[in-house]
């Protein structure tokens, strides 16, 4: 049962698929954004998992500790989270505008009003 040991990677894959599925299958623009967020989060988890070291501790210089988690992915993901937040904000702002102009945020209803090829 060695593959269970990497259970966090399985979580990543499952989350990724769920997120991707929502992005593709959902017609509601907010739900699409939610899906996108889940998709991105899976990647964040993936990066954090990379940094993990068995029996490692936080990368702070302590007496008697020689195994640290890799701090770099954490830093990277901090940046990526910021980017993700900005993207969500941008997406939500667009959804607000869509609601204002079309009166709906359902894709099929919008397409009834406007033919976007």
């Amino acid at each position: 049962m060695e593959w269970l040991g990497h259970y966090n990677y399985w979580v990543v894959v499952v989350l990724m698929m769920i997120g991707f599925y929502i992005v593709i299958a959902q017609g509601n623009l907010i739900k699409k954004l939610v899906g996108l967020n889940i998709f991105q989060t899976s990647v964040f988890v993936f990066f954090i998992s990379l940094a993990y070291l068995e029996d490692g501790t936080a990368p702070i210089a302590l007496e008697g500790v020689s195994e640290y988690s890799n701090p770099l992915p954490h830093v990277l993901i901090l940046t990526a989270i910021v980017v993700g937040v900005a993207l969500t904000a941008m997406g939500l702002a667009l959804v607000v505008r869509v609601q204002e102009t079309y009166g709906t945020i359902e894709e099929d209803e919008i397409h009834q009003q406007d033919d976007l090829h």
Partner: peptide, 16 residues
């Protein structure tokens, strides 16, 4: 007004 929708489309695909 379709610009908004196009932008949203781009946002989803670009982010992926």
């Amino acid at each position: 007004r379709r610009a908004i929708l196009s932008s949203f489309q781009y946002l989803i695909m670009g982010t992926v």
